Simulated assay, not measured.
Amino acid sequence: MIGVRETTSRRRVRLTPVRPAGWWFDAVLLAGFVALTAALARGHLLGLDLGVSEWAFTHDPAPLYWTARVFNLLGQGGGLLLPLSGALAVAVAWRRRTIRPFLLVAAALMVTMLTIGPLKLWTDRAAPTASVKEPFLAPEEAVQIFNHLPAGAYSMSYPSGHVANAIVWYGVIALLLASLTVGRLPTGLYRLVRYAPPAILLVTTTYLNFHWLTDGLAALLLGLLLDRILHRVPWDDLPLPAAARRWDHPFVRAA
């Protein structure tokens, strides 16, 4: 009987469907990220980045600039996204009597730290503002990827952490909100929470010259890939230790 129960339990743990269905879209996202990185390494698209950056530098009236700065706060990971996700996880855990939301938050933190940060270090790209402040690089030098920048210079522009993190964390926040409201969260509001902040951050980080345009485009590809990985995990069905038996209720199905 124990063997039958274990087999049945294992069969229930299946990957959660995502849209578009199948792994082909994940492959497209990964291939797109690799292709974009390779194109930049060969010197392609750098003119596009420089052109967009120059336009942003010359079209920054104070009201528009400060509006963009305010909206850019949506991408503050340690100051907003992680605390908000943690607070929602606590609320959902208490309401649903489950520790499973903490697994989702921990996994989101892990996948972003293990991918975005190392990629930034590896690609060694300066921000557009490196041409107007330390180390005062020529724009044609600052835009280069796989650069050899002076010691202490900011060299973590590619891909945009604001955009990639926003895709992952606002996906987590939207799911937790839907669970907390027991599925009563309006579809329009769910989509607004999930998709509007990454789009806003793509625009603001580029307009403010915090990032090159292709930094944000690469982050979109990477963020969507990480988001699909997280949403494939069957959080409600993952086996938990016996000690957590009283706190192992599902929370995704409640959404």
Rank of each mutant, 00 (worst) to 15 (best):
G77F: 15
G77L: 13
G78I: 04
L81R: 08
L82R: 02
P83Q: 04
P83N: 13
P83V: 13
L84Y: 11
L84R: 03
S85W: 14
S85R: 07
L88T: 10
L88S: 00
A89M: 09
V90S: 02
V90R: 12
V90D: 08
V90E: 12
A91F: 11
A91Q: 06
A91S: 12
W94C: 13
W94Q: 03
R95G: 12
R97V: 02
R97H: 15
R97N: 07
I99C: 14
R100Q: 03
L104D: 10
L104Q: 10
L104I: 05
V105R: 07
A106Y: 07
A107L: 12
A108H: 02
A108T: 01
M110P: 02
M110T: 11
V111H: 10
T112N: 05
M113H: 14
L114V: 05
L114Y: 12
I116K: 10
I116Q: 01
G117F: 13
P118T: 09
L119G: 06
L119H: 03
K120A: 08
W122C: 03
T123L: 12
D124W: 06
D124H: 00
A126F: 00
A126C: 05
A127W: 07
P128T: 03
T129W: 15
V132S: 09
V132Y: 12
K133S: 15
P135D: 14
L137S: 14
E141G: 02
E141W: 09
A142C: 02
A142T: 08
A142M: 06
Q144S: 10
Q144M: 13
I145N: 08
I145R: 01
F146S: 09
F146G: 01
N147F: 00
N147E: 12
N147R: 13
L149H: 06
P150H: 00
A151D: 15
G152N: 13
A153F: 00
A153Q: 08
S155M: 12
S155G: 08
S160I: 01
G161D: 09
H162W: 00
H162V: 01
H162E: 08
H162Y: 07
N165D: 15
V168D: 15
G171T: 01
L175E: 03
L176I: 00
A178N: 14
L180Q: 09
V182Y: 13
V182G: 14
V182P: 08
R184V: 07
R184N: 10
L185H: 06
P186L: 05
T187F: 14
T187I: 14
T187L: 11
G188H: 11
G188E: 04
L189I: 06
Y190D: 14
R191V: 07
R191F: 07
R191H: 14
L192C: 10
L192D: 03
R194M: 13
R194Y: 13
Y195V: 00
Y195N: 04
A196L: 15
A196D: 15
A196I: 14
P197K: 08
L202V: 07
L202M: 01
L202A: 05
L202S: 02
L202C: 01
V203D: 11
V203W: 15
T204Y: 15
T205A: 07
Y207L: 08
Y207C: 13
N209D: 03
N209R: 05
